[in-house]
Design a protein around this nucleic acid. Structure first.
Lengths: 160, 160
DNA sequence: GTCGATGCAAACGTTTTGCACACTG
DNA sequence: CAGTGTGCAAAACGTTTGCATCGAC
């Protein structure tokens, strides 16, 4: 029987701060542990919604005002190469970044700009069909599905 | 019984040049018929693959060298508002434009950049599920599905 | 002659890059 | 001390806009 503390899940071990774990992996690759990287990683692990590079920069800068937007971009690239985060394109604006462990897709309304998350399983049949028919391996996290949300679709029907 | 000439399909009537038909619709809306519009429309109706604004500009300029890229953008916007064309985002680069009558989706390989077309029916189940579960009306033409094409997916597996 | 369309240049928003300096290990 | 990361400025990229002029009707 395992200790009671470890029963709350594999990621809940208080001894392994995920931020520090990633920093260590960075160092093993020959990278350096810097303050901006630590702060950026905390932002990425802490909060909920997907954020753009600019939004992340603002959050980081509220703690360390001198961190430059280009540093954010460079570190986001690095973290993506490491497989810690991924970016997704939701509509026409800037890309958004989130943890690679979040495996949902996105539905984005092209009228109101609203975003919904769609669970991974939502795309299972489509990805299976693409695999089967074309050998194509779809990554349902990277793209947003554009269209009209329920409210906007209703509004359009009311007009016509 | 209809005349033999009309039997080859509703769009095949040689008396109605689709370019001129669109130009007329533009004029009915208060727009003007200009040379750049006519040439751009010919390009859009003539050739096969999806093209970016820059590629279309190059084609137009091979006939009328003074047509500016901004004119192309403005006319593409106008034609999209008219419902004649649509644009789609295939990966990270510039948008591509094609006739609204082409109703397929796109599979884009994020490794080699290759593009495949996926028939409209390919997305039927997904769009139906989105509609049913979320009331969300997906437009499967506007977005590309990113992933790995058969060749690149194989190459990745060979590495691992 | 009216008003919409165009050419040009300049701005835009997002992201990348070149360089000198600062800091980590 | 070596070499990576950073701040800054500037460029790159695709796209949009302001403005004077041109051209369709």
């Amino acid at each position: 029987m395992r200790s009671p503390a470890s029963d709350i899940g594999p990621e809940a071990n208080p001894d392994v701060d995920p931020v520090e774990e990633v920093l260590h992996r960075l160092r093993e690759r020959g990278g350096r542990i810097t303050t901006s990287r630590r702060i950026l990683l905390r932002c990425l692990f802490e909060k909920g919604p997907h954020r753009t590079a600019e939004e992340l920069a603002a959050e980081v800068q509220s703690v360390a005002p001198d961190v430059h937007l280009s540093t954010i971009y460079r570190n986001l690239d690095e973290l993506e190469r490491l497989g810690v985060i991924v970016h997704a394109h939701l509509g026409h604006g800037p890309a958004t970044y989130h943890l690679a462990t979040e495996t949902h897709g996105h539905l984005v309304c092209e009228m109101c700009g609203g975003e919904m998350e769609a669970p991974e399983g939502f795309f299972r049949d489509l990805t299976a069909a693409a695999q089967r028919e074309y050998g194509f391996v779809i990554d349902p996290r990277h793209f947003a599905m554009l269209g009209r949300c329920a409210a906007c679709a209703e509004a359009v029907e009311a007009t016509s």
